[in-house]
Protein backbone atom coordinates (compact mmCIF):
# COMPACT_ATOMS: atom_id res chain seq x y z
CA UNK A 1 0.00 0.00 0.00
CA UNK A 2 2.92 2.33 0.59
CA UNK A 3 3.63 2.29 -3.14
CA UNK A 4 0.13 3.58 -3.93
CA UNK A 5 1.09 7.24 -3.56
CA UNK A 6 3.64 7.09 -6.32
CA UNK A 7 1.21 5.33 -8.63
CA UNK A 8 -1.53 7.85 -7.82
CA UNK A 9 0.79 10.72 -8.65
CA UNK A 10 1.80 9.06 -11.91
CA UNK A 11 -1.79 8.46 -13.00
CA UNK A 12 -2.93 11.93 -11.90
CA UNK A 13 -0.01 13.57 -13.67
CA UNK A 14 -0.78 11.67 -16.85
CA UNK A 15 -4.50 12.47 -16.77
CA UNK A 16 -3.85 16.17 -16.18
CA UNK A 17 -1.07 16.43 -18.75
CA UNK A 18 -3.17 14.80 -21.45
CA UNK A 19 -6.16 16.97 -20.62
CA UNK A 20 -8.30 13.91 -19.92
CA UNK A 21 -9.48 15.63 -16.74
CA UNK A 22 -9.55 19.21 -15.44
CA UNK A 23 -8.74 18.25 -11.87
CA UNK A 24 -7.80 15.28 -9.76
CA UNK A 25 -9.23 14.97 -6.27
CA UNK A 26 -7.09 13.14 -3.75
CA UNK A 27 -5.27 13.80 -0.49
CA UNK A 28 -2.25 15.90 0.31
CA UNK A 29 0.07 15.53 3.27
CA UNK A 30 -1.58 16.64 6.49
CA UNK A 31 -0.11 19.13 8.92
CA UNK A 32 -0.62 16.99 12.02
CA UNK A 33 -0.09 13.27 12.63
CA UNK A 34 -2.72 10.89 11.26
CA UNK A 35 -4.48 13.55 9.18
CA UNK A 36 -4.44 14.28 5.47
CA UNK A 37 -6.25 17.04 3.67
CA UNK A 38 -8.55 16.50 0.70
CA UNK A 39 -6.88 18.29 -2.18
CA UNK A 40 -7.50 19.03 -5.83
CA UNK A 41 -4.72 19.09 -8.36
CA UNK A 42 -5.23 21.08 -11.54
CA UNK A 43 -1.82 20.53 -13.12
CA UNK A 44 0.91 17.91 -13.00
CA UNK A 45 2.95 19.98 -10.52
CA UNK A 46 0.09 19.95 -8.04
CA UNK A 47 -0.47 16.27 -8.72
CA UNK A 48 2.99 15.67 -7.30
CA UNK A 49 1.61 16.61 -3.88
CA UNK A 50 -0.88 13.76 -3.77
CA UNK A 51 -0.23 11.21 -1.05
CA UNK A 52 -1.68 7.94 0.16
CA UNK A 53 -1.37 6.23 3.52
CA UNK A 54 -3.59 4.86 6.29
CA UNK A 55 -4.99 8.28 7.18
CA UNK A 56 -7.11 8.92 4.09
CA UNK A 57 -10.42 8.08 5.73
CA UNK A 58 -12.48 11.02 4.52
CA UNK A 59 -14.85 9.99 1.73
CA UNK A 60 -13.87 11.94 -1.36
CA UNK A 61 -17.17 11.30 -3.15
CA UNK A 62 -18.40 14.16 -0.96
CA UNK A 63 -16.40 16.56 -3.14
CA UNK A 64 -18.07 15.56 -6.40
CA UNK A 65 -21.57 16.83 -5.73
CA UNK A 66 -22.87 18.88 -8.67
CA UNK A 67 -19.42 19.60 -10.07
CA UNK A 68 -19.27 20.34 -13.76
CA UNK A 69 -15.61 19.62 -14.59
CA UNK A 70 -14.05 16.42 -15.81
CA UNK A 71 -12.62 14.96 -12.66
CA UNK A 72 -10.15 12.28 -11.77
CA UNK A 73 -10.92 11.00 -8.31
CA UNK A 74 -8.95 8.74 -6.02
CA UNK A 75 -11.36 6.18 -4.61
CA UNK A 76 -11.17 3.45 -1.98
CA UNK A 77 -13.84 0.74 -1.94
CA UNK A 78 -16.30 2.83 0.07
CA UNK A 79 -15.61 6.02 -1.91
CA UNK A 80 -16.31 4.12 -5.13
CA UNK A 81 -19.64 2.88 -3.75
CA UNK A 82 -20.60 6.44 -2.91
CA UNK A 83 -19.54 7.52 -6.38
CA UNK A 84 -21.94 4.90 -7.75
CA UNK A 85 -24.65 6.25 -5.47
CA UNK A 86 -23.89 9.81 -6.62
CA UNK A 87 -24.21 8.74 -10.25
CA UNK A 88 -27.51 6.91 -9.58
CA UNK A 89 -28.83 10.00 -7.79
CA UNK A 90 -27.74 12.33 -10.62
CA UNK A 91 -25.23 14.27 -8.55
CA UNK A 92 -22.47 13.61 -11.07
CA UNK A 93 -22.23 11.91 -14.47
CA UNK A 94 -20.19 8.79 -15.07
CA UNK A 95 -18.73 10.41 -18.21
CA UNK A 96 -17.28 13.24 -16.12
CA UNK A 97 -15.23 10.88 -14.03
CA UNK A 98 -12.02 9.01 -14.25
CA UNK A 99 -12.02 6.84 -11.14
CA UNK A 100 -8.55 6.06 -9.85
CA UNK A 101 -9.30 2.97 -7.80
CA UNK A 102 -7.38 2.20 -4.64
CA UNK A 103 -7.63 -1.33 -3.23
CA UNK A 104 -7.87 -0.52 0.45
CA UNK A 105 -6.73 -2.37 3.54
CA UNK A 106 -8.49 -0.13 5.95
CA UNK A 107 -7.80 3.22 7.55
CA UNK A 108 -6.41 3.51 11.05
CA UNK A 109 -8.45 5.12 13.78
CA UNK A 110 -6.52 8.04 15.23
CA UNK A 111 -8.63 8.03 18.38
CA UNK A 112 -7.92 4.37 19.08
CA UNK A 113 -4.22 5.02 18.76
CA UNK A 114 -4.37 8.20 20.84
CA UNK A 115 -6.18 6.36 23.62
CA UNK A 116 -3.49 3.68 23.70
CA UNK A 117 -0.65 6.18 23.98
CA UNK A 118 0.39 7.83 27.25
CA UNK A 119 0.80 11.36 25.85
CA UNK A 120 0.41 13.55 22.83
CA UNK A 121 1.43 11.85 19.60
CA UNK A 122 3.82 14.02 17.64
CA UNK A 123 4.72 11.68 14.79
CA UNK A 124 3.34 8.52 13.22
CA UNK A 125 5.11 6.34 10.71
CA UNK A 126 3.84 3.17 9.11
CA UNK A 127 4.96 0.03 7.32
CA UNK A 128 2.73 -2.33 5.37
CA UNK A 129 1.43 -3.94 8.53
CA UNK A 130 2.30 -1.65 11.42
CA UNK A 131 1.95 1.92 12.61
CA UNK A 132 4.33 3.45 15.11
CA UNK A 133 3.29 6.47 17.14
CA UNK A 134 5.90 8.52 18.95
CA UNK A 135 5.61 11.36 21.38
CA UNK A 136 7.40 12.85 24.32
CA UNK A 137 9.06 9.88 26.01
CA UNK A 138 7.23 7.06 24.25
CA UNK A 139 7.16 5.13 21.03
CA UNK A 140 4.55 2.46 20.46
CA UNK A 141 3.91 0.17 17.56
CA UNK A 142 0.58 -1.36 16.67
CA UNK A 143 -0.52 -3.92 14.16
CA UNK A 144 -2.70 -1.98 11.75
CA UNK A 145 -5.42 -4.59 11.96
CA UNK A 146 -5.78 -3.87 15.69
CA UNK A 147 -6.23 -0.13 15.27
CA UNK A 148 -8.41 0.10 12.18
CA UNK A 149 -11.48 2.30 12.12
CA UNK A 150 -14.36 0.14 13.28
CA UNK A 151 -16.09 0.31 9.90
CA UNK A 152 -12.88 -0.70 8.13
CA UNK A 153 -12.43 -3.74 10.34
CA UNK A 154 -15.91 -4.87 9.22
CA UNK A 155 -15.52 -3.92 5.56
CA UNK A 156 -16.27 -6.52 2.89
CA UNK A 157 -15.86 -4.25 -0.14
CA UNK A 158 -12.29 -3.02 0.08
CA UNK A 159 -11.75 -3.02 -3.67
CA UNK A 160 -13.30 -0.25 -5.74
CA UNK A 161 -16.52 -1.39 -7.42
CA UNK A 162 -15.97 0.92 -10.38
CA UNK A 163 -12.65 2.20 -11.62
CA UNK A 164 -10.96 3.35 -14.80
CA UNK A 165 -7.48 3.05 -13.40
CA UNK A 166 -6.31 0.84 -10.58
CA UNK A 167 -3.24 1.72 -8.54
CA UNK A 168 -2.49 -1.90 -7.59
CA UNK A 169 -3.83 -5.42 -7.87
CA UNK A 170 -7.04 -5.98 -5.91
CA UNK A 171 -6.64 -6.94 -2.27
CA UNK A 172 -8.27 -9.97 -0.76
CA UNK A 173 -11.73 -9.21 0.63
CA UNK A 174 -12.40 -10.07 4.26
CA UNK A 175 -14.52 -13.19 4.65
CA UNK A 176 -16.75 -14.42 7.40
CA UNK A 177 -17.09 -10.99 9.00
CA UNK A 178 -19.91 -10.49 11.48
CA UNK A 179 -20.87 -7.00 10.42
CA UNK A 180 -23.75 -6.36 12.75
CA UNK A 181 -22.87 -7.58 16.24
CA UNK A 182 -23.20 -4.04 17.61
CA UNK A 183 -26.60 -3.54 15.96
CA UNK A 184 -27.88 -6.83 17.37
CA UNK A 185 -26.74 -5.77 20.82
CA UNK A 186 -28.85 -2.61 20.52
CA UNK A 187 -31.79 -4.53 19.06
CA UNK A 188 -31.70 -6.86 22.07
CA UNK A 189 -32.18 -3.98 24.50
CA UNK A 190 -35.54 -3.11 25.99
CA UNK A 191 -37.03 0.19 24.74
CA UNK A 192 -36.04 1.85 28.03
CA UNK A 193 -32.47 0.60 27.82
CA UNK A 194 -32.26 1.70 24.22
CA UNK A 195 -33.54 5.15 25.04
CA UNK A 196 -30.91 5.50 27.75
CA UNK A 197 -28.19 4.08 25.50
CA UNK A 198 -28.87 6.66 22.79
CA UNK A 199 -29.14 9.42 25.37
CA UNK A 200 -25.63 8.61 26.62
CA UNK A 201 -24.33 8.19 23.10
CA UNK A 202 -25.54 11.61 21.99
CA UNK A 203 -24.89 13.54 25.19
CA UNK A 204 -21.57 15.10 24.04
CA UNK A 205 -23.06 16.29 20.71
CA UNK A 206 -22.55 20.01 20.05
CA UNK A 207 -24.44 19.98 16.75
CA UNK A 208 -21.48 21.12 14.70
CA UNK A 209 -22.92 18.95 11.90
CA UNK A 210 -19.51 17.55 10.97
CA UNK A 211 -21.13 14.10 10.63
CA UNK A 212 -23.73 15.41 8.23
CA UNK A 213 -21.33 17.52 6.23
CA UNK A 214 -18.65 14.85 5.90
CA UNK A 215 -21.28 12.49 4.50
CA UNK A 216 -21.47 12.25 0.70
CA UNK A 217 -25.17 11.46 1.00
CA UNK A 218 -26.00 14.72 2.79
CA UNK A 219 -26.11 17.05 -0.16
CA UNK A 220 -29.58 18.59 0.26
CA UNK A 221 -29.46 22.28 -0.68
CA UNK A 222 -31.16 23.00 2.64
CA UNK A 223 -31.02 20.35 5.34
CA UNK A 224 -34.22 19.82 7.31
CA UNK A 225 -32.50 21.11 10.46
CA UNK A 226 -31.77 24.37 8.66
CA UNK A 227 -35.31 24.90 7.39
CA UNK A 228 -37.03 27.82 9.03
CA UNK A 229 -40.46 27.77 7.38
CA UNK A 230 -41.58 25.50 8.88
CA UNK A 231 -38.91 24.91 11.45
CA UNK A 232 -38.83 21.16 12.02
CA UNK A 233 -36.23 21.06 14.77
CA UNK A 234 -35.22 23.45 17.54
CA UNK A 235 -31.80 25.00 17.23
CA UNK A 236 -30.70 24.65 20.82
CA UNK A 237 -29.15 21.87 22.81
CA UNK A 238 -32.37 20.27 23.97
CA UNK A 239 -31.79 16.48 23.91
CA UNK A 240 -35.00 15.92 21.92
CA UNK A 241 -33.72 18.24 19.19
CA UNK A 242 -30.28 16.65 19.14
CA UNK A 243 -31.89 13.21 18.90
CA UNK A 244 -34.28 14.31 16.18
CA UNK A 245 -31.36 15.56 14.10
CA UNK A 246 -29.39 12.33 14.42
CA UNK A 247 -32.29 10.00 13.77
CA UNK A 248 -33.73 11.84 10.82
CA UNK A 249 -30.31 12.24 9.28
CA UNK A 250 -29.77 8.50 9.61
CA UNK A 251 -33.16 7.72 8.03
CA UNK A 252 -32.30 9.92 5.07
CA UNK A 253 -29.32 7.64 4.51
CA UNK A 254 -31.40 4.43 4.45
CA UNK A 255 -30.43 2.21 1.54
CA UNK A 256 -27.71 4.66 0.57
CA UNK A 257 -25.15 4.44 3.36
CA UNK A 258 -21.99 2.47 2.56
CA UNK A 259 -20.65 2.60 6.13
CA UNK A 260 -17.62 4.58 4.95
CA UNK A 261 -17.22 5.91 8.48
CA UNK A 262 -16.67 9.56 7.51
CA UNK A 263 -19.33 10.70 9.97
CA UNK A 264 -17.77 9.00 12.95
CA UNK A 265 -14.26 9.94 11.89
CA UNK A 266 -15.24 13.61 11.63
CA UNK A 267 -16.96 13.93 14.97
CA UNK A 268 -14.97 16.23 17.26
CA UNK A 269 -16.41 14.59 20.37
CA UNK A 270 -16.13 10.95 19.31
CA UNK A 271 -19.77 9.93 18.90
CA UNK A 272 -20.36 6.63 17.10
CA UNK A 273 -23.43 7.69 15.15
CA UNK A 274 -22.79 4.78 12.76
CA UNK A 275 -24.83 2.65 15.10
CA UNK A 276 -27.93 4.35 13.58
CA UNK A 277 -26.98 4.04 9.93
CA UNK A 278 -25.78 0.47 10.45
CA UNK A 279 -29.19 -0.59 11.71
CA UNK A 280 -30.71 0.72 8.48
CA UNK A 281 -27.99 -0.91 6.45
CA UNK A 282 -28.72 -4.21 8.17
CA UNK A 283 -32.46 -3.86 7.57
CA UNK A 284 -31.88 -3.14 3.89
CA UNK A 285 -29.75 -6.25 3.64
CA UNK A 286 -32.19 -8.44 5.58
CA UNK A 287 -35.37 -7.16 3.92
CA UNK A 288 -34.24 -6.37 0.39
CA UNK A 289 -30.90 -8.16 0.02
CA UNK A 290 -29.50 -4.74 -0.73
CA UNK A 291 -26.06 -3.26 -0.28
CA UNK A 292 -25.69 0.32 -1.45
CA UNK A 293 -23.49 1.43 -4.29
CA UNK A 294 -22.45 -1.90 -5.75
CA UNK A 295 -23.92 -1.46 -9.22
CA UNK A 296 -24.87 1.32 -11.59
CA UNK A 297 -27.59 -0.86 -13.11
CA UNK A 298 -29.84 -1.68 -10.15
CA UNK A 299 -32.20 0.87 -8.64
CA UNK A 300 -32.10 1.17 -4.83
CA UNK A 301 -34.91 -0.58 -2.89
CA UNK A 302 -36.51 2.63 -1.67
CA UNK A 303 -36.67 3.76 -5.28
CA UNK A 304 -38.66 0.90 -6.77
CA UNK A 305 -41.72 -1.15 -5.96
CA UNK A 306 -41.58 -4.90 -6.20
CA UNK A 307 -44.58 -7.08 -5.40
CA UNK A 308 -42.27 -9.18 -3.28
CA UNK A 309 -41.32 -6.25 -1.02
CA UNK A 310 -41.81 -7.25 2.61
CA UNK A 311 -44.90 -5.68 4.14
CA UNK A 312 -45.36 -7.55 7.42
CA UNK A 313 -45.05 -4.29 9.33
CA UNK A 314 -48.33 -3.00 7.89
CA UNK A 315 -51.33 -3.87 9.96
Amino acid sequence: MLSYAEKIREIAGRLLASGAVNMVIGFRQGTIPMMNEPHFAKNPAEAAKLVWDSHCGINLANYLTDRKEKIGIVAKGCDSRNIVTHIIENKIKREQLVVIGVPCQGMVDKRKIALKCPGEITAVIETETQVTATGNGFSQSFDKKDVLQHNCSLCIHRNPVIHDELVAAPVEEQKGIDRYADVRAVEAMSPEQRWKYFEDLLSPCVRCYACRNACPLCYCPTCFVDESRPQWVGKGQDPSDVRTFHFLRAYHCAGRCTDCGSCERSCPVGINMRVFTKKLEKDCLDLFGWEAGLSLDVRPPLDVYRPSDPNDFIK
Binding site: P191, R194, W195, K196, F198, K315
Partner: peptide, 12 residues
Protein backbone atom coordinates in the same frame (compact mmCIF):
# COMPACT_ATOMS: atom_id res chain seq x y z
CA UNK B 1 -34.74 4.42 19.02
CA UNK B 2 -36.24 3.44 22.31
CA UNK B 3 -39.86 4.43 21.70
CA UNK B 4 -42.09 1.85 23.39
CA UNK B 5 -43.76 -0.70 21.13
CA UNK B 6 -47.25 0.24 20.02
CA UNK B 7 -46.60 3.94 19.78
CA UNK B 8 -45.67 3.63 16.13
CA UNK B 9 -48.06 1.85 13.79
CA UNK B 10 -48.35 1.41 10.04
CA UNK B 11 -51.47 0.67 8.03
CA UNK B 12 -52.32 0.39 4.39
Amino acid sequence: MGIEPGRLQFSW
